[in-house]
Design a protein around this nucleic acid. Structure first.
Lengths: 339, 339
DNA sequence: ACGCATTTGACAACCGATTGCCATTAACTG
DNA sequence: CAGTTAATGGCAATCGGTTGTCAAATGCGT
């Protein structure tokens, strides 16, 4: 059995291989990159030497000379938001499968950090995936013009995007609540700059109008469980019997706050979340929510980006991919309080 | 107001700056790196030009010539485990503060992936932080000899480590259970290769012996909520009245399974988790668990690594940092069933 | 065995920065 | 004012690859 050559002092370079085989470094480079351009016997000698020396190409050098870095930046507003866990896992898996490296950056919900990161990444990554961008349309379009980009949950003209179509499930959610006898519903909105939140609200209010139900909007709230307390208080104060909440994080926070206040869910207040993140199924009560294929969205985003980067197969680069969503009913919704 | 020069076609290089200022490229490089080596007036001209051209150094080129990449690899066994998200957030924050880039890699609980990633990273990162390594001591020590490394929750001779001292809280947990009348306790163990799990078990069994309590061990189980079902069944079958579980993920899974089986927590079974991850406070019932300063552990790991990389200030490089842990009592523990 | 087409592989420039070395110039000493 | 020292900045090599160019070697047909 070939004993693992236990990488010696310095990693091997193509020059080491070239010396060992008695050829030029460029030949080695070709043998490894376009094998058909090199005599099969030489090639095999080179490949054997590469294995023997435990050669790994230096990605920096490769990037410098070829212009491609083999890395993809993934920007998320808040790395601790479980929603992004799933997204990141999706991108990570797909990127690794394609031999790319993932550069994960937390932009801390700041448009400035986001902008400067994008500028930085322009040279150290081949492309970027930007989730829930906090930039305005103009800045985002400008950035996309300068480097391959795919956005997630953000629609800007000319920028390929993966959209998790939570809005389309809003009517489902509303019908679910109406069927339980709710007539007074609140939408607990997310960050003011969030396009997702805006789209969800639009879809919900349209559905409400069609059905002749009153839906009021409260917020905005930061997408964190801590915001749930204020959101719960606002909801209670507004007198509604059910809430559709921008995301599960806030919804879970509301669950906790309502419990503290001695209010029962769903008897006194029904809660519907969005996203179906980790934890939505085991909180108390389990959260009725709009389930999203988040991890899949990450994978699709990567595929779309890679299609941009390697426009070989004319596989018709889709520039917009909509991920379906559906309502998952759990324990946080129930018949309206008959007061 | 200086209108943002809206980055033109190609990013500026030091050559552009040199040409604009009428000096050599090397002078520009020096002016930016060691300002004191360059005449103040020249320097200021250069710096002004750099700003005007919106210059950002090309990190690839810098890495190639200087040997330092400005990147740090962070290896975790499973990116979807919430435990690591707190860790990752800690490393991310601290790395960014120090101007480093984080290369996040999910090693998929595989020692092979871990090994090959380490070899790869050897050239593309200045150092690595390895959480819950699945490698054996030998391989890990060998890897650490080849590049700066800090481990998390893994103790190997000669490798700097951050240890979250959950074992030290084991007596607390056990006393808590004993005080509630439990005399028959199970330890639900994690992966067989996990040093953390082994250490926790050792600490627990020692504490049990001192106190004359019987503690049996069941498992091993994969650190996922899904494993909780089997773990719960095993625990019930073993007849214990309380479990101390390797981590919160499994514990939460057990909570769900016990509920399915019609068993009440804590009336029929008390559960103590480890880590205090996202979700431990809002599951049903809220989980009694060993709280760990996970994010802080990530920050400390980065600090230790950076101290290795820049051995300037003789700030006595600690090679081992132990993070304290304590028991957080919530609703999943209660008086023993008096059968 | 000769000439032509084709394959194969060596050479060298280049990517963008860093850095050792040296020449120039300025400033200071005696 | 000569001589020494220090400050300054330019040249060129280097990092590890990629890639265009071109000469040499090969194979083919006749």
């Amino acid at each position: 059995m070939a004993t693992q050559p236990m990488a010696t002092g310095r990693p091997a370079t193509i020059h080491d291989i070239a010396a060992l085989c008695g050829v030029a470094a460029s030949t080695v480079s070709r043998a490894l990159a376009n094998p058909e351009r090199v005599n099969i016997r030489t090639r095999e000698r080179i490949q054997a030497a590469a294995v023997e020396l435990n050669y790994t190409p230096n990605s920096q050098a490769k990037a410098l000379s070829s212009g491609r870095t083999g890395a993809v930046g993934v920007l998320v507003p808040d790395i601790t938001n479980p929603f992004y866990f799933d997204l990141i896992r999706g991108t990570q898996l797909q990127l690794k499968a394609a031999g790319y490296t993932q550069l994960l950056v937390d932009t801390e919900e700041s448009d400035e950090v986001e902008a400067s990161t994008l500028e930085q990444l322009r040279k150290s990554a081949d492309g970027v995936i930007v989730a829930a961008s906090r930039l305005n349309d103009e800045a985002l379009a400008a950035a996309a013009a300068r480097m391959p980009m795919v956005t997630v949950n953000r629609d800007v003209d000319g920028v390929p995007a993966v959209i998790i179509d939570t809005p389309s499930a809003m009517p489902q959610a509303l019908d679910h609540l109406i069927s339980l006898g709710h007539t007074s519903v609140a939408y607990v909105s997310g960050p003011a700059v969030s396009q997702s939140s805006a789209r969800r609200w639009t879809a919900l209010s349209e559905a409400a109008e069609e059905r002749g139900v009153e839906v009021r909007r409260i917020g905005p709230f930061a997408p964190k469980t801590q915001s749930g307390a204020a959101a719960a208080d606002a909801a209670v104060h507004s007198g509604v019997t059910a809430c559709i909440v921008f995301n599960d994080l806030i919804a879970i926070g509301m669950l906790q706050r309502l419990r503290e206040r001695g209010l029962r869910v769903p008897e006194d207040m029904s809660i519907v979340g969005c996203d179906d993140i980790f934890g939505a199924d085991f909180c108390n009560p389990p959260l009725t929510t709009m389930s999203s294929p988040i991890e899949q969205a990450g994978r699709v985003a990567v595929s779309m980006l890679l299609a941009q980067l390697n426009p070989l197969a004319g596989g018709g680069n889709r520039s917009r991919s909509v991920m379906p969503t559906h309502l998952t009913v759990r324990g946080s919704t129930g018949p309206a309080r008959s007061n």
